[in-house]
């Protein structure tokens, strides 16, 4: 069913049930995300995609579009709120980009550039965190974890479907844990998948590192904004082709 919504005043026809974040991207409006993975169940943990829906702040990845929604993405207040959320992440962990292997292909860093972050408005905390290197293939750099829970939900043991990563403790005591026994059963591809899925440099593949030279790294070749918008545009074209085929068999 098609519904009519507006994004920043622009009228848009969208499929009811699609997430705001996808509808916006398909219409050329970039909303930054950190925990959301298209095609997977939404987690709603990072809140970086916060937008105003009919005046109320909501996360664009968890809310499906409905008839008459008025969505404010790029208003001054909500833009600054999203920027503050990203700045909080930088202040909370120890995000030392110059020494990080993920730099240049880190989604948090790329999102920082997109929200025009120069410095965090919050005091940097420098909390000591213990690195976990118990697994043979995965280096767990806890300084950088933003608790998005992508790895917790989407990286599982192939045989038993058990979780390999988990979050232990609550609040300021929360920390990401890895089950070394299950982690050591991961194939090289699954380790790569886990490290690529991590939006920061927390899950590091021990066998890889600094493969791409500066200037040729993922988000230097193409910004995260361009990647999100281009993928959405391609999906949209494919969907339109599909729906045309259905109408004229």
């Amino acid at each position: 069913m098609t519904v009519k919504i507006t994004i920043d005043g622009q009228s848009i026809n969208a499929q009811a049930g699609d997430a705001i974040v996808d509808v916006a991207a398909e219409n050329g409006v970039y909303i930054p995300t950190l925990c959301y993975v298209k095609g997977k169940p939404c987690l709603g943990t990072c809140r970086t995609c916060s937008v105003k829906v009919n005046g109320r702040v909501m996360s664009a990845c968890t809310i499906p579009v409905t008839e008459g929604m008025e969505i404010d993405v790029n208003g001054a207040e909500i833009t600054d709120m999203r920027k503050a959320l990203v700045e909080l992440l930088f202040a909370e962990g120890n995000h030392n980009c110059p020494s990080c292997e993920k730099s240049g292909r880190c989604e948090l860093q790329a999102t920082g550039y997109e929200v025009d972050m120069m410095v965090s408005r919050f005091p940097y905390r420098f909390t000591p965190r213990v690195v976990d290197h118990a697994s043979a293939t995965v280096w767990l750099e806890r300084d950088r974890c933003i608790f998005c829970q992508r790895c917790v939900e989407f990286i599982r043991d192939k045989e038993t479907n058990q979780k390999i990563f988990s979050i232990k403790g609550r609040g300021t005591h929360a920390r990401i844990e890895i089950n070394p026994t299950l982690a050591n059963k991961m194939s090289a591809e699954q380790v790569r998948e886990a490290s690529d899925l991590c939006p920061v440099g927390c899950i590091i593949d021990k066998t890889q590192g600094f493969n791409d030279p500066i200037g040729k790294r993922k988000f230097e070749i193409k910004s995260i904004r361009a990647r999100v918008l281009d993928t959405a545009a391609k999906n949209m074209t494919a969907n339109q082709a599909n729906s045309l085929n259905r109408e004229h068999p």
């Binding site: 980009c97 110059p98 020494s99 420098f126």
Partner: peptide, 19 residues
Amino acid sequence: ISVGACAVWGGVPAMRNVV
């Protein structure tokens, strides 16, 4: 003007902050 990671948030020298 704060120029560079060290002036902006402490940078590499700030790695001693956790010790």
